[in-house]
């Protein structure tokens, strides 16, 4: 299953890269810089999606106490943090030519940054505890609290810099995006989702192997 996914990924990424640079026309006002959107937007979506899965599996762990939920939670958080980091970096690279600054406290980027901090905290918590039932329990609580905080963080960050105006960027952007650009965006989202699935299955298998090994050496005596 994973092998098929891996084989599928190679042409998908290559094709997606080719399409980004040779097929899709550059956006009129922003020029070639705008092409970073095809990495930025899918990474944001994948990051949010993985935190969402982490939330669900953390609730599942506290409810059912099955180790599988914990494995999924810690794997998705790690992948989510990586994609969140990619999103922040590409976002600020994109911001440099468009707003003439790397960091402009754009609400969505700021939310991503705070999420990044919360889940880096989650990974640190896992580092500072040893593999066991306590680690799974405590980090599940952090994941739940962190995910439920997202709407509040987003709302407050939007109000913070935009002086109460509801974010209109989303709605206007829809009209701005041309048809080939939109198709390209969806293709890159799909490619990124494939990559996410591949990484997740790898990470889960790695985690299972690590835990099996730890169990083995712990029960030797």
């Amino acid at each position: 299953m994973r092998r098929i996914l891996g084989i599928l990924l190679i042409p998908a990424i290559a094709g997606c890269g080719w399409m980004i640079f040779f097929w899709v026309p550059a956006e009129a006002s922003m020029g070639i810089v705008q092409k970073i959107m095809y990495i930025h937007v899918p990474s944001v979506m994948v990051a949010y999606f993985s935190f969402f899965i982490a939330f669900i599996s953390s609730v599942g762990y506290l409810w059912k106490r099955k180790e599988g939920f914990d494995i999924v939670a810690c794997s998705t958080v790690e992948i989510g943090v990586i994609f969140c980091g990619i999103a922040i970096v590409t976002g600020s690279i994109w911001a440099r030519p468009t707003w003439n600054t790397y960091w402009s406290w754009d609400p969505r980027l700021t939310t991503a940054l705070i999420l990044f901090l919360i889940f880096v905290g989650y990974i640190l918590l896992r580092r500072f505890t040893t593999y066991g039932e306590q680690q799974a329990r405590l980090s599940a609580v952090i994941a739940i609290v962190g995910c439920l905080d997202i709407p509040l963080i987003h709302m407050s960050v939007v109000w913070w810099r935009t002086l109460h105006q509801p974010s209109t960027i989303l709605s206007t952007q829809k009209n701005v995006i041309d048809r080939p650009l939109a198709i390209m965006l969806w293709i890159s989202v799909f490619t990124m989702a494939l990559l996410f699935a591949y990484l997740l299955s790898m990470r889960i298998e790695l985690e299972q192997k690590t835990r099996a090994y730890l169990k083995q050496i712990a029960n030797i005596y």
Binding site: I114, L117, I118, V120, G121, Y122, L124, L125, F128, T129, Q134, L138, V141, I142, V145, G146, D149, L152, I153, M155, S156, V157, W159, W160
Partner: peptide
């Protein structure tokens, strides 16, 4: 949550402050 952990003094602010951003802004 952090009382039993190693490095709890550093872990508590790391976990707590990002979650408090909405409260601080408000």
């Amino acid at each position: 949550l952090t009382t039993d952990l190693r490095f709890k003094d550093i872990l508590l602010p790391i976990l707590l402050f990002p979650l408090l951003v909405p409260l601080l802004l408000a």
